[in-house]
Amino acid sequence: MDWGWIGRNLDLIGGRVLEHVALTAPPIVIGLVLSIPLGYWASRSRVARSILLVLGNIVYTIPAIALLVLVPVLLGGAILDPVNLVIALTLYALALMVRSAADAFAAVPHDVVSSATSIGYSAWQRFFAVELPLAGPVLLAGIRVVSVSTVSLASVGALTGIENLGSFFIDAFQRQFLTEALVGIVAVLVVAAVFDVVLQLLGRLLMPWNRRNRRAAENPALLRTPPIGGVA
């Protein structure tokens, strides 16, 4: 181990962390956004659900290296362009996320949706004000998995010359230099952990009812209120 190497290469480490973030944040966000309409569609039609889930499984089965070569060939871009990695990671994110999104929308209580319709929500209003927020907790659980998987998967991009934290593994392997490999692993873990914390905080911010409901379920005292005029 060469602890001094870390101190001497802080700039390099910092730069690769930023590159890693820049490469992984867009696929996570785009994957989530695209999975919402697809997941909603899958939750409403059995045929759509089967097709989308099978497609997702197929995409997820393609080896990462193969996909990284395939994307520029299919889209006609340069093979070393970082965009290839973003596209490939987006496809993986989407492949994983469609299933979560389909389950998330399927889990929205039917009577709440029907009740919203009965009191005069239009289909669009109902989607944005009722179904999407109520699908939120399951969507969040899904995107947390996708986030971790994307952050770790991005390292593979280094093999095709796209600079990120994975580049440390390649260097370490070629130079038989353990310290660099360790730095890469820890940095990937830290990025994944930070992403997860950010997602959880966003979830709490956007879905305040979720926590309070859970708290109420754990603590029945919250349900007890003084009777109003002798009735409760």
Partner: peptide
């Protein structure tokens, strides 16, 4: 006005 069994309230509001 529509009032239903199990109130049909929006749980997130």
């Amino acid at each position: 006005g529509y009032i239903m069994q199990n109130s049909g309230l929006l749980p997130h509001r």
